[in-house]
Design a protein around this nucleic acid. Structure first.
Length: 685
DNA sequence: CTAGGGTTAG
């Protein structure tokens, strides 16, 4: 039906084909563009070459240009290429256009094309369209069924995918290895060991054992179910392995927390001459990050680039949490710049990672900027932004974000409410918190869990409603967690309620005896109330149980270097200047009538010594050091491993005002933004 | 066709 249009010169065709054979598509394209009337044959060749080389955009653009100029009367082969290109692109709008084209050209009953269209819809996330196409196909083969199963997998409807498989066993064609693998992959996503074992038996009984893909799939499902031992047995028994098989076993050990074995296997890969791909590096990077070996992850990231493997969007998403965990805003900014420069496709997971990274590094403004520019926001993106605002004490904004999220049609989940409630608690929005808490069940059908109840205790305690908080704990339908009692205890410390503090503290020493913070809070309450007998009882208990206070430690990044200060630190750069500066600050404060908050000091020492101990707190040292070293106008960002102490809070607040700088301190609970003599936490640290 | 990625405490 497609008459050959004005013939191309034979020399052109020869040259054109040889370019295509060598994969030199740009040269082939130059030649192609010179032909006034390209025929269907050469167009199909070029378009399918684009698709095969993973250049779907070029493929589709060329197709659409030719369609517009009406130079093209497509045939099955061409439409197949375009359909596959669109599957690669995962563009649902283009998918529908192409489907319409196919129908328009009357190729409805072509089976390979029908199968490709199902796959395309699946890859584009349009599962009901895929199912409808499946239903309409008059003839179905094993690929049709498998494509539908894979579509369900792609759309994360795993149970439904298994349903299709069951139907296929009853009324469909005989399955092949691809079908088996697709079901295996789904079971793996569901972490279903039961299905995994069943499929494993089926594989052995029906002679699929030597299929490398199936082997890797089996290793993966045992890995995901944390049966690392069985994963290794299958892996070792595989007759042939490719890089994916190795990548799967690497992640098996990382997942199981055995990073050292993963590292050993990674070295063995290199010895055995397995050609590493980006997923191999990504697997090691994320394995290190998830096992807390952040420095090692960054090393792998550097080695990967040295080895000539280009980081992809998954690499970026894996390395970002490393910067977040180190609070390295410089590292994070570098990654952000890398994403920008290399024009990565817009990726929702990378964007979410950036939002969290900026927030956790103390820069909520940039975090928000990235969020606002996201083209699509899913539940995790919204939750991340809500949690970010809550960490920074912007409770009102968490509520506004919550409303906007609802407006945009996204249903909140348990994490959303955790974020909103902790936002309310940091900003003392008691009524808002109550409304939000009760709407969880009433409006959104979510059962509050123990964490939500603990959050409500925190809301009440932080606002000073201590008796109500205690009542709430006693009446809640779930077992109060240590965090619920911890919230109450902290409230008692802030509001100096010795009686309730004693109750909460004693419970905590019982149910969470290994946490030094509990002892210290209770100790502070007793010392503050001059109940020295009780205080020494707690101290003895700590001794008996071998509970040691974690040393306070703060750090600050200046230029490219991180400076760390430990409490009582005496051997750091500019020691004399720093202590001199702190002493001078203290003198100025006294002139203006501030008294040092010596309640917090635990040692039984007299007044002057107490002040000295206070002066040596790591957060004061870090802030003072930063003030002496930073350029004017720069924001000071200090991080501390424990909670900021009350005296430090007052002194840092004073320094921010008297020097006229913004100081941010991130402690173990939240961010404190000091400006003009006040703090974003409203003095409820 | 199989691998590698993001949110929740006090």
């Amino acid at each position: 039906m497609n008459q050959i249009l004005p013939k191309m010169p034979a020399s052109f065709i020869g040259q054109f084909k040889s370019y295509l054979n060598c994969g030199q598509l740009n040269q082939a394209r130059n030649l192609f563009d010179k032909i006034p009337n390209p025929n269907i044959y050469s167009s199909t060749l070029l378009i399918s070459a684009y698709t095969k080389q993973n250049r779907p955009l070029d493929s589709i653009q060329l197709y659409q240009n030719l369609r517009k100029e009406k130079k093209l009367q497509p045939d099955n082969l061409l439409l197949l290429s375009i359909t596959k290109a669109c599957a690669l692109l995962s563009d649902p709008i283009k998918a529908k256009e192409i489907h319409k084209d196919v129908i328009g050209f009357g190729f409805k009953s072509d089976l390979p094309l029908g199968n490709a269209l199902i796959e395309m819809y699946g890859k584009c996330g349009l599962i009901s369209e895929a199912q409808q196409l499946f239903d309409e196909l008059p003839v179905k083969d094993v690929i049709t069924w498998t494509s539908l199963i894979l579509s369900y997998k792609n759309c994360k409807q795993f149970r439904e995918g298994l349903g299709v498989f069951r139907e296929m066993l009853i009324s469909g064609p005989k399955l092949n290895s691809v079908t088996l693998l697709s079901v295996l992959a789904i079971s793996s996503k569901l972490k279903s060991l039961k299905f995994g074992r069943e499929i494993h038996c089926f594989v052995i009984r029906n002679g699929f054992e030597d299929n490398m893909f199936i082997g890797s799939g089996l290793v993966d499902i045992y890995s995901k179910c944390l049966i690392t031992h069985d994963a290794r047995i299958v892996f070792d028994g595989m007759r042939s392995k490719d890089v994916v098989s190795w990548n799967v076993i690497l992640s098996a050990y990382s997942l199981n927390g055995d990073l050292d074995e993963a590292l050993r296997l990674f070295d063995k890969m290199k010895v055995d001459g397995v050609l590493l791909n980006s997923a191999s590096w990504n697997s090691m990077i994320s394995g290190c990050v998830q096992n807390g070996r952040i420095e090692r992850a960054l090393q792998f990231f550097a080695q990967m680039q040295d080895s000539g493997t280009k980081p992809n969007h998954i690499t970026i998403a894996s390395i970002l949490p490393a910067c977040t965990g180190m609070e390295s805003i410089r590292g994070g900014r570098e990654i952000h710049g890398y994403v920008y420069r290399n024009a990565f496709i817009k990726d929702i997971i990378i964007d979410t990672g950036l939002v969290l990274m900026y927030a956790k590094c103390g820069d909520l403004n940039t975090s928000r900027l990235v969020f606002d520019q996201m083209p699509r926001k899913d539940i995790i993106a919204w939750n991340t932004m809500i949690v970010a605002n809550s960490m920074h004490g912007c409770g009102k904004e968490t509520l506004t974000l919550f409303d906007k999220m609802i407006e945009s049609g996204i249903r909140p989940d348990a994490v959303t409410f955790s974020g909103v409630l902790s936002g309310c608690s940091h900003s003392q929005l008691v009524d808002k918190a109550r409304q939000s808490f009760s709407s969880m069940e009433r409006e959104y059908g979510l059962n509050p869990d123990a964490d939500h109840y603990a959050s409500m205790v925190d809301v009440l305690s932080r606002a000073g409603y201590l008796n109500e908080a205690y009542e709430f704990i006693q009446n809640m339908p779930v077992e109060p967690t240590p965090s619920a009692w911890g919230a109450l205890l902290n409230g008692c410390k802030v509001y100096k309620n010795t009686e309730l503090g004693k109750i909460a503290g004693e419970v905590l020493l019982d149910i969470e005896p290994q946490n030094p913070g509990n002892y210290l809070s209770l100790l502070n309450i007793f010392v503050g109330a001059k109940m020295y007998d009780d205080a020494s009882r707690i101290r003895m208990l700590m001794n008996d149980r071998g509970i040691r206070k974690e040393p306070g430690c703060s750090w600050v990044q200046i230029k490219n270097k991180v400076y760390t200060f430990v409490k009582g630190d005496d051997r750091f750069a500019m020691r004399n200047e720093v202590y001199g500066f702190l002493k001078e600050t203290r003198r100025k404060m006294r002139v203006e009538g501030y008294m040092p908050d010596t309640d917090i000091v635990l040692q039984d020492v007299d007044g002057e010594e107490k002040e000295e101990v206070l002066c040596s707190h790591s957060e004061k040292l870090a802030v003072a050091f930063a003030i002496l070293n930073l350029d004017r106008g720069e924001v000071i960002r200090v991080f501390k491993n424990l909670r900021i102490c009350g005296d430090c809070h007052g002194v840092i607040s004073f320094m921010a005002k008297s020097i006229g700088v913004c100081i941010t301190v991130r402690d173990s609970v939240r961010f404190h933004h000091f400006k003009d003599g006040s703090c974003s936490c409203k003095n409820l640290w």
